[in-house]
Computed example of a mutant assay.
Amino acid sequence: MDWPRAERALGSALSADYKQLVETSGDGIFDETIWLLVPDSAFDECDLHAQTMERDEILGTLWEFEDKSVGLLETGVRVLPSVGGAHRNSASGVLRLLCDVPTPTKHRFATAGQTLGITRQ
């Protein structure tokens, strides 16, 4: 993964633990619930760039009618789609998020290919 290129394309830094998780797992879904989006995924549903553009468009219309939360008013902060939903671009910890999700034993992971089948390419 070319992380500097991915971060330039997103206009945002990505946390070290997110990068480690992507390098280890690739794109896919934890526990049939939590999507791991990856820059330049072969699947639109798991492509961090594609999902970020879609969310930017949706949030752009939301901010026309709703006030942004205080945390989103900070310079350089934006919402990125992530495992578990949207989050601010911060070093707060993607792996921590996964650890905080209640599961009976451990997290199951299915690759995007196993879950979604045929790629867009």
Results as ranks from 00 to 15, higher is better:
residue 1 M to P: 10
residue 2 D to P: 11
residue 4 P to D: 05
residue 4 P to S: 05
residue 8 R to M: 07
residue 11 G to W: 08
residue 11 G to V: 01
residue 11 G to C: 06
residue 13 A to M: 05
residue 13 A to F: 06
residue 14 L to E: 03
residue 15 S to D: 13
residue 16 A to S: 14
residue 16 A to L: 07
residue 17 D to W: 01
residue 18 Y to M: 02
residue 19 K to Y: 00
residue 19 K to P: 01
residue 19 K to S: 00
residue 20 Q to C: 01
residue 20 Q to T: 11
residue 20 Q to Y: 00
residue 23 E to T: 07
residue 23 E to G: 09
residue 26 G to D: 02
residue 28 G to H: 01
residue 28 G to A: 04
residue 33 T to G: 10
residue 33 T to E: 13
residue 34 I to N: 11
residue 35 W to Q: 02
residue 39 P to K: 05
residue 39 P to E: 06
residue 40 D to F: 11
residue 41 S to K: 05
residue 46 C to H: 11
residue 47 D to C: 12
residue 47 D to T: 04
residue 51 Q to M: 14
residue 53 M to G: 10
residue 54 E to C: 03
residue 55 R to T: 15
residue 56 D to W: 09
residue 57 E to T: 15
residue 57 E to N: 08
residue 58 I to M: 11
residue 58 I to D: 04
residue 67 D to G: 09
residue 68 K to T: 08
residue 68 K to L: 07
residue 69 S to D: 15
residue 71 G to P: 06
residue 74 E to A: 13
residue 75 T to L: 13
residue 76 G to E: 08
residue 80 L to G: 05
residue 82 S to C: 10
residue 82 S to Y: 13
residue 82 S to H: 14
residue 86 A to T: 12
residue 88 R to I: 14
residue 88 R to V: 12
residue 89 N to H: 04
residue 89 N to G: 04
residue 91 A to M: 08
residue 92 S to Y: 10
residue 93 G to F: 03
residue 95 L to E: 15
residue 97 L to T: 10
residue 97 L to P: 00
residue 97 L to D: 05
residue 98 L to W: 09
residue 98 L to M: 15
residue 99 C to P: 00
residue 100 D to P: 01
residue 100 D to N: 14
residue 100 D to R: 06
residue 101 V to M: 13
residue 101 V to D: 04
residue 104 P to Q: 12
residue 105 T to M: 08
residue 105 T to A: 11
residue 107 H to S: 09
residue 107 H to N: 07
residue 108 R to T: 15
residue 110 A to P: 00
residue 112 A to H: 04
residue 113 G to T: 07
residue 113 G to M: 08
residue 113 G to C: 06
residue 114 Q to G: 07
residue 115 T to H: 10
residue 115 T to Q: 11
residue 117 G to K: 06
residue 117 G to V: 09
residue 119 T to F: 00
residue 120 R to W: 09
residue 121 Q to R: 12
